[in-house]
Design a protein around this nucleic acid. Sequence first.
DNA 1: CCCTTTCGCAACCGATCGGTTGACAACGGT
DNA 2: ACCGTTGTCAACCGATCGGTTGCGAAAGGG
Lengths: 118, 118
Amino acid sequence: MDDSSNRLDRAFAALADPTRRDLVARLAGSDATVGELAEPYDVSLQAISKHVKVLEEAGLVTRSRDAQRRPVHLHAETFDLMTTWIERYRREAEERYSRLDALLARGAEDRTDLKEAS
Amino acid sequence: MDDSSNRLDRAFAALADPTRRDLVARLAGSDATVGELAEPYDVSLQAISKHVKVLEEAGLVTRSRDAQRRPVHLHAETFDLMTTWIERYRREAEERYSRLDALLARGAEDRTDLKEAS
DNA sequence: CCCTTTCGCAACCGATCGGTTGACAACGGT
DNA sequence: ACCGTTGTCAACCGATCGGTTGCGAAAGGG
């Protein structure tokens, strides 16, 4: 399963960058070319081109060909992969968290040192 | 803005590493100490200690104190933050994907004159 | 045909990352 | 009071990352 693991590697790493998350947010509104995507930022076009490539290799976006333009659009499938992974463990964590209260209630006889709550 | 963005930065970056995803998967089953977590891997204990620290600073796990042990357990909240972010744009992407057929039927056109506000 | 626009590729740079080893702090057991 | 257990901190190393600049390829428009 190096395959799906590697896809998750790239997908999570891709979304770890705020610029790339912003690109995704804007692409959710409408497809765009690299030039259009690059315009709002004060970095070079090549930098954005690299970002788009990272998103593409992560399977988060795809590109088509329209003359010399390469319109970029989101690819929802990989997002599903991520939410599926996250939700699986979030659910287990919450279930265990619910049971944690009962566990703590049973064994919290000598917990006199919790003076700080969240 | 930088606040929640930074939390997402760290959370996504943390889960970009397969070892850390594996740690999360195991912690979903039960809490564990750093030593217990490190045991299955062939890397040093310090390496796993660092991984746990990354997960902690990302808000994905928390630690309590039980004598010299520092049991680690999942913190579901940050997982919610991630799925919320992802789901938002995944949904928009899928909606736009449904409309893509109609868009393609009309043919590609530039969007420089979108002034309709009805 | 050229020429422009759009954009990818390659090389390079500083910063960060994942790993190592070594030292040591914190705590309990005896 | 010592020792073993548990885990963190600090320094270092090679690899990768996000950014830059420079060059050139691909496709239309005049």
